[in-house]
Design a protein around this nucleic acid. Structure first.
Lengths: 347, 347
DNA sequence: TGTTAGCACTCGGTTGAGGTGTCTGCTAAC
DNA sequence: GTTAGCAGACACCTCAACCGAGTGCTAACA
């Protein structure tokens, strides 16, 4: 069956009302709230058809209808109206960007706080500093029980660390350096897996006993610096929505927010420049919840994300408009001409 | 009336059982669970007396009794048994300290994660980097529209920043330097309030127009570095306890956890070296909840705290034992001889 | 004087019946 | 293709009855 224009108008009206109230929507209500003048009986026929087509469902036989995930997605992708940001919403971002003295992480979590405040949903900000790649490694002999590990990372940064071992010779360290360079060049810390370790050990010859401590040192060095971080703003707002009055439902959402590492990965893997929407039943999102997010990119690389988590029936147009505005504002601010900002030196 | 030994045994038994079940405790149950052999009628008399003395209360006239805040406090301060840490609990800390490669913040939040895991309550870790005090300020002329701001902080660290202004002369900068030194020496960033600003402006004479931008620059410089931070671990565990099945109660607790700044201050103001316990009805703790925490000190200065938030009827002996162990372990680890750990250099 | 047994009373919680309102599906007429 | 009307389904609310845990009180006992 085809999704006629009239069916679309009815579907839009149902989703609008469902987003507003959270309750199943009946035919009579719709009859009075669409441009067409149709009796509730006709609406019932259309709703029945929409149900057959998978856009709606009934929680029980004598209730109104609720849009399915498919129904809401169709709504988002073409039926809903545009949302005009209010003056308040526009000014908050400008103030924020004016105030961009702090580092990016703080700016991002402040932006999330603003989004949470403006949309009345819980906001998430996620920080994922780009992983440093190994460009060159050298192990320099200090004495027979210690050597200096030197790594040049992508971007030219050099890091060093002394490593203590039971015994090492200059010869062994040369072999070690060669083995490490061969196996690790171009990798990030998280890409050093068992295979890589075994390869390195195989290549290390008579320096095999030094590999483990060297890898540990490398891992330490690469792991240093800003860590990935998740900030949740306005958590209590989530509990204001009836779908989470049931504690077990609320728990489901909080569990998602607790898995910070998974959250960072998921949100930074999204498509940049457009809204990413994950609804319950798709991916890891818990029942009745929905996540909308925008990755933040600098020079093509995703360094974080900003998003909103709320009930599946959230006001998508408002949320998307706000997130889009903040995300693009942040991205412009970060990529824009660095107009002679702060220079720190520490002696 | 006096709190006799027998009353203490009864009170202890009531609190023990209340902590276990969360339900009001009846006289019959106690009769079978204290060393003394007493009928439930006698227990009832004693319980009635304990109620008059303010240790117990009845939620309604035909229910058992629940300990009051006073009752629980008395229990904590002398009645409860010691808790022996299990082997598992002991080994987790040791692993953690072995693994102390990361910075303090990460170590602290990992400790909180462990505490949450071991106690089955929600754990909080709070990081409060000691505020840097201003020791000396100098404003050095670069050209007529910019100057260099130099601050020496407590600990000898020097920070600089160029400040752009519409117009400035060497003379004005000298006046400015004197005014800033006079007004700000010994202060931290957060102590620069309106009074201080007005004093500075008054002292600045013909350099008044430079004060605002200078203060902004100073604020930026001092604010740089690690920020205060709150990490919450095992949040969902909170929702496992019946007292928070009601969403409005849960909301009360989450609200506390959202006020991160207040939380940092409150938890770092506690007495070091012993358990600080704030129960509902005392201070900001929400209904039915209780917070136990230990500040973490380095060289006499509080740099953070680790704590647990849970139902008022939480297992205090277990929580205190765990927190005490982790807090003292962290403090020892931080203050202990820094046995030649990592050295990073960045060129 | 302290302890105990017995009894009436209180009160929250549960269960089940009855009533109500909303919404649907179906049918017949337009 | 659209509409009016009607019977049926079903969640939800209210109310009364009942149950049971637990108390306070009193009288008897050691």
């Amino acid at each position: 069956m085809e999704l006629t224009e009239r069916k679309k108008r009815i579907l839009k009206s149902i989703v609008d009302e469902y987003i507003r109230s959270g309750d199943p929507v009946g035919s009579k209500y719709i009859s009075g709230h669409i441009p067409d003048t149709l009796s509730s009986a006709t609406i019932r026929n259309e709703m029945s058809a929409l149900e057959d087509m998978g856009y709606l469902y009934q929680p029980h036989s004598s209730a109104g209808r609720i849009p399915t995930t498919k129904g809401i997605r169709t709504y988002i992708e073409g039926l809903m109206e545009d949302y005009k940001l209010s003056l308040e919403e526009l000014s908050v971002l400008n103030e924020l960007l004016d105030f961009k003295v702090g580092e990016f992480g703080k700016l991002l979590s402040e932006a999330a706080r603003a989004v949470s405040h403006l949309t009345n949903y819980t906001a998430i900000s996620v920080l994922k500093p780009p992983a440093e790649r190994i460009e060159r490694i050298k192990a320099v002999h200090i004495d027979d029980s210690s050597y200096l590990l030197i790594i040049r990372c992508s971007g030219g940064k050099v890091k060093t660390k002394t490593v203590n071992v039971p015994h090492c010779t200059e010869e062994q360290l040369k072999t070690l350096s060669a083995a490490l360079n061969g196996a690790l060049t171009g990798l990030t810390a998280s890409e050093i897996n068992l295979n890589v370790i075994l390869d390195t050990e195989a290549a290390a010859g008579d320096a095999t006993h030094l590999v483990t401590s060297a890898l540990r040192g490398i891992n330490d060095l690469l792991g240093t610096g800003t860590e990935e971080d998740v900030q949740v703003q306005g958590l209590t707002k989530l509990l204001s929505y009836p779908e989470f009055y049931d504690v077990s439902k609320a728990k489901g959402v909080l569990e998602i927010l607790e898995q910070k590492h998974a959250l960072v990965n998921r949100l930074t893997e999204g498509m940049p420049g457009r809204p990413n929407i994950v609804m319950s039943g798709e991916g890891l999102t818990p029942e009745d919840a929905s996540v909308v997010f925008y990755p933040i990119t600098v020079e093509g690389q995703t360094v974080g994300a900003i998003g909103v988590i709320g009930p599946k029936r959230m006001d998508y147009k408002k949320v998307i408009a706000n997130l889009e505005y903040f995300a693009s504002g942040l991205i412009d601010g970060l990529n824009g001409t660095g107009e002679g900002r702060k220079q720190d030196e520490q002696h």
